[in-house]
Amino acid sequence: MAQERSALLLHRQLGELMKNPVEGFSAGLIDDDDIYKWEVLIIGPPDTLFEGGFFKAHLYFPKDYPLKPPKMKFISDVWHPNIDKNGDVCISILHEPGDDKYGYEKANERWLPIHTVETILLSVISMLADPNDESPANVDAAKDWRENPAEFKKKVARCVRKSQEE
């Protein structure tokens, strides 16, 4: 029951995104037979270090979506404080509300059942432009970003170039 419902909703969301694309990303399925696994292409936001890049990422939806959030993983290399070295995106909107273990994430940015693929990706795009270095998933990237902007810029530029070749 819960499964049919989430599949139906994901089909509708995908159809809607195909019909009315949202600026900044495009979305499709990894495998046409599995509605729970999406592939998205995020365009590096203009006027940021990521401008010019095309970053591929996967979204994995649980069967009880939208009650529970999907997981997101970048397939392209992205040097960013909130994306860990395996590509896993660590952003509060993809986490369920709960008591904040470290007290760094405001609960109002947490997962809500009314969020959609669009609201998730818009948050991720804004995260690219504006890293949150209080809760880094990639500690080295956070350190670069804070203490050595030139190095950070160089590593990001490398990711952007690489993403253009993929």
């Binding site: 009650l67 369920e96 509300p97 609960a107 109002n108 947490r110 997962w111 809500l112």
Partner: peptide, 13 residues
């Protein structure tokens, strides 16, 4: 609005 996002809309609150 913040109260609703934190204490009303999330499941389990």
């Amino acid at each position: 609005k913040e109260f609703c996002n934190q204490e009303v809309e999330p499941m389990g609150k």
